[in-house]
Computed example of a mutant assay.
Amino acid sequence: MADLYLSDIYIYPIKSLGGIRVQTAEVEARGLRYDRRWMLVDGKGLFLTQRQHAQMALLQVSLQPEGLEVHHKQGKLKPLYIPFAESEGSGHELQVTVWDDTVPALEASPGISAWFTDALGMPARLVHMPPQTRRLVDTAYAANGEVVSFADGYPFLLIGQAALDDLNSRLAQPVLMNQFRPSLVFRGGAPFAEDGWGEFTIGNQSFRAVKPCARCVVTTINQATAEKSPEPLRTLAAYRQQRNKIMFGQNLLPNGTTGTLQVGDKLIVLSQK
């Protein structure tokens, strides 16, 4: 097997907004540090997503030393600064819903939520997941009661660059990796080699691939413009469909270790499924 290595790391501090490409990241039980620890919800506490609101792609998040900054990619609003202390502090607690899970979260200040309401053209409130909130991974795949942030279902998503290259060789217009919103990208190996992996390490961190990732319409949204297209789902459906779902990437669980990942870390496959 060709040498495998970690080529990209992405975090998405606010669920469904623009992600951040980083060189290093800390592995925590519920995902990479800062990843999907914040989320936008509607007036009933239901999560907002690009699936229904593609314009969310136009809001880009960046990490600052003491908080988050959000700007509109088309410059329609002044950037918003969100101090960690303000979003993680003793805000109003409310129940929020992500798919089938309802968990407690802390609401950010009204001024912060007002900015998002203006930016998206619909009611939106920013909430933060406090450390004591435990959202469990699907028990059909969890081994030790693993937890997850506000991510759809799993703490980590891995995609091989070769898989994207293979897909792009079939498309008239290539797509970027950011439309698939992975946590970790690796180089080396054949396209979709990750489909067969069981346990593996990246640097000093240990992971387990638990299930393929079923893809939705978010993969068809251009993350720079929020424009939609039939691709790449139409092409993927021809060769990546299983049980009426289109699979691309592998959902991961950490094997109990915490520490640092760095671009360039060697990936070693320990077992196959």
Rank of each mutant, 00 (worst) to 15 (best):
A2P: 15
A2T: 14
L4T: 05
Y5F: 15
I9F: 03
I11H: 05
I20G: 10
R21V: 07
R21H: 11
Q23M: 04
T24I: 05
E28I: 00
A29Y: 04
A29W: 03
R33T: 12
Y34E: 12
G43C: 02
K44S: 13
Q50W: 04
H53T: 13
A54L: 02
Q55D: 13
V61T: 15
S62D: 06
S62V: 11
L63V: 01
Q64V: 12
E69D: 10
V70I: 04
H71T: 10
K78D: 14
P79K: 06
E88D: 14
L94N: 04
L94M: 15
Q95D: 14
D100G: 07
V103D: 03
A105M: 08
E107M: 15
S109L: 13
P110K: 12
P110I: 10
G111R: 09
I112P: 00
I112Q: 01
S113R: 09
A114M: 07
M122T: 13
R125Y: 09
L126C: 07
Q132S: 12
T133G: 00
R135C: 08
G145Y: 04
V148K: 11
D152Q: 14
D152A: 04
Y154Q: 06
Y154T: 01
P155R: 09
P155M: 01
P155A: 01
L164N: 03
D165M: 08
L167H: 03
L167W: 06
N168Q: 04
A172H: 11
A172T: 09
V175Q: 14
V175S: 11
V175W: 10
N178I: 14
R181E: 05
V185I: 14
R187P: 03
R187L: 04
G188W: 00
E194G: 01
D195A: 02
D195T: 00
W197R: 06
T201Y: 04
F207R: 10
R208K: 13
R208A: 07
C213F: 04
V217H: 00
T219D: 01
T219W: 01
T220F: 00
E227V: 03
R234D: 07
R234H: 10
T235S: 13
A237K: 14
A237S: 15
Q241A: 10
M247A: 07
F248L: 14
F248M: 13
G249K: 06
G249S: 03
N251K: 05
L252Q: 08
T258K: 03
L261R: 11
L261T: 10
L261A: 09
G264L: 07
D265C: 06
I268V: 15
V269N: 02
S271Q: 09
